[in-house]
Write a protein that binds this DNA or RNA. Structure first.
Lengths: 363, 363
DNA sequence: ACCTAGATTTAGACCCATCCAAAAAATCTC
DNA sequence: GAGATTTTTTGGATGGGTCTAAATCTAGGT
């Protein structure tokens, strides 16, 4: 119907699929040459390049990455598997990943394992079928260590993020949770606390172990033998329940450190429920330093783990691994920083003026 | 090196790429037949199917979706473009999308436009190159309406989510924000408020317009002429600033409704900063009902917009559109529900026992 | 035993780019 | 200006599936 004039619409209306062949014909060169132009090869003469580029624009050509991937070796895609995308922490992390990938023309598949190894397994298989160039994996709780070997057999590069399973060497990006908890303990001890409990974590994965290690080691360093570590789920509800149980014990702690901020929020609500004032009757410290920490009452002191930065590092690591599949494995471990607010009792929660400060958001 | 025995490792070690051809040879059938088996075609005889499946398992075959997509018409992938993945609201929405897609063996690319139309444009082009079957788009603020037409010219099905631009008919999944704000106004009026302000929104997109409309219409319905609508950004900081400005006016409102929960949190902090008690000196209602609403002090009353459900609906809509590209466009508009807590003054915030109730999280 | 409708299977073109080796064109050297 | 280089360009094979139309096989009917 449409006349075959040479504006871009004509082509796109015809079928929507202009191929290299069409460009080649239009520009009077071969398919191979067009391919070289597309990939910005320096082999092509300047005049030819311009001519071809003009044809590309004129015909409204769209590169077919799928076809390219079939012959070439890269798909320019990555698989990201997290276990709780609804958690703001992961939101920030994914944003970090995204930011790095886009600069490299990469796109990522995102899937949410909900901490189910079975779902995680399905996702990984699907990613494999899609021939992603690499995987960013936050292993679901209960992930078998040999999963990492399996991925290796699949020749699918994998960067573990936040948690890790299996034996080194592997690629990993995360935070030094042990050090983070140590900082929290040190801070509380400096404030005079002697009886400090740790809340949360149950499965045997690295991120949990590291926290526990930091807790016990720091307590030992200070000669404090009265340790109390509750294994629980990682939800707000779990924090709430745990603090109730803890306060009901013969010698309740004067401070608690929580596996993550959600639990800490729950713990603070639990304290209030008991008529206790977080930060005064019992200090509370969380982990992650999500944006909402400034919102709670009192504002939550938290070990900042910089999710956006972790995401960036993980993505960079993956890109490096793709470029050099056999290079030495790397572990990027960022240092956490204790973000002191009110819930640890360092500040008086009587005035609300402190709230105003950490308000700035990054958008 | 490895003997060519028939266990699965042999094949995967050889090269990692077993093809249909290999399966066909091993099973003594043709490539076509294997392809039919893979796609669960009813044409294949039961005995043949079993034989082929055995070979598939024996050789450790991995389906190559890229190759399939090249000849076939579906890639089994979807593109999701959001504007703020770090916002918990989107986390929940993405989880909803993911849940539906996985059941259909679909995987989705996720990109974060950060509300930049330019970035958004780049993402869409990249998705097109990857030949996604459809796009789920939460349009960035400032998106040109003709973008939707462009996508149509590209023959790329697009479901708009939460916000929409351009002229109907289009596919859309979201919430009836107008009704949500109406509910909030009605509730406040029932509590005796006469002077109610609305905070937030600046760009001209559907989600903002709908809220404003709801606000003005509901106020008019009650014969309240003293309206006040502040155009601001949508951040916590903006809420904080806005409430300060508002309270400084000659006749400050006794209640404010906020464009989203983040702003409402900011507004509550602002009130505290002024020495005012949210829920008593000034009622505050947010929108979205993110999980953190239960955390604030007082707990935030909010218009629940069910992000997980919206995500599910959007994904379902996209799958329907893929199956039937020329069917009638659909608009799925969920009904919001006012989730009453303390910040609107309906309950006494004196006791903290209320906090315990809405604690349950869904993980 | 012969014919036919229906059930299975298959060959071979096709999708669209990349890769390689070799051809063609341009430039240089003496 | 012939031969040696260097720079550009190209044909044709290739990757791993799907599709269509035609071939082959089966069981049922007479």
């Amino acid at each position: 119907m449409a006349q075959d004039n040479d504006n871009s619409q004509a082509a796109s209306l015809r079928d929507g699929s202009v191929t290299l062949q069409d460009i080649a014909a239009h520009a009077g060169v071969s398919r191979s040459t067009v391919s070289l132009v597309l990939r910005e090869s320096p082999l092509v003469a300047e005049r030819t390049r311009e001519k071809v580029q003009a044809s590309i624009k004129a015909l409204g050509y769209v590169y077919n990455r799928g076809a390219a991937a079939l012959r070439g070796s890269r798909t320019q895609t990555l698989g990201v598997v997290v276990y709780d995308i609804a958690n703001p922490f992961f939101g920030a992390m994914v944003a970090g990943i995204d930011a790095v990938l886009n600069r490299q023309n990469y796109v990522s598949f995102l899937t949410n394992s909900e901490d189910s190894p079975a779902r995680q397994q399905r996702f990984l298989e699907r990613m494999r079928e899609h021939r992603v160039d690499a995987i960013l994996l936050c292993p679901a709780e209960g992930t078998e260590p040999q999963l990492i070997e399996t991925l290796q057999e699949w020749r699918l590069p994998c960067v573990q993020v936040l948690r890790h399973v299996g034996q080194p060497p592997f690629d990993y990006a995360g935070t030094d949770f042990e050090q983070g908890v140590r900082q929290a303990v040190n801070h509380l001890v400096a404030l005079g606390h002697r009886h400090i409990a740790f809340l949360g974590g149950q499965a045997e994965h690295s991120a949990t172990r590291a926290r526990w290690q930091g807790y016990f080691a720091a307590m030992a360093d200070h000669g404090l033998e009265q340790t109390r570590c509750l294994r629980t789920a990682l939800t707000r509800q779990a924090g709430f329940d745990a603090i109730l149980a803890l306060m009901d014990e013969p010698t309740p702690p004067t401070a608690v450190i929580c596996h993550n901020d959600l639990m800490a929020f729950g713990a603070m609500l639990g304290l209030k429920r008991l008529g206790l004032r977080p930060g005064i009757d019992c200090a509370v410290i969380g982990t992650d330093d999500v944006e909402e920490t400034a919102l709670s009452d009192p504002a939550l002191t938290s070990v900042a783990t910089h999710p956006h930065a972790i995401g960036e590092e993980a993505a960079r690591l993956a890109l490096r691994r793709i470029a050099n599949p056999d290079g030495a494995r790397e572990q990027v471990v960022l240092s956490p920083r204790l973000q002191v607010r009110e819930s640890c009792g360092a500040h008086r929660p009587s005035t609300h003026s402190r709230h105003a400060k950490p308000l700035v958001t990054q958008d």
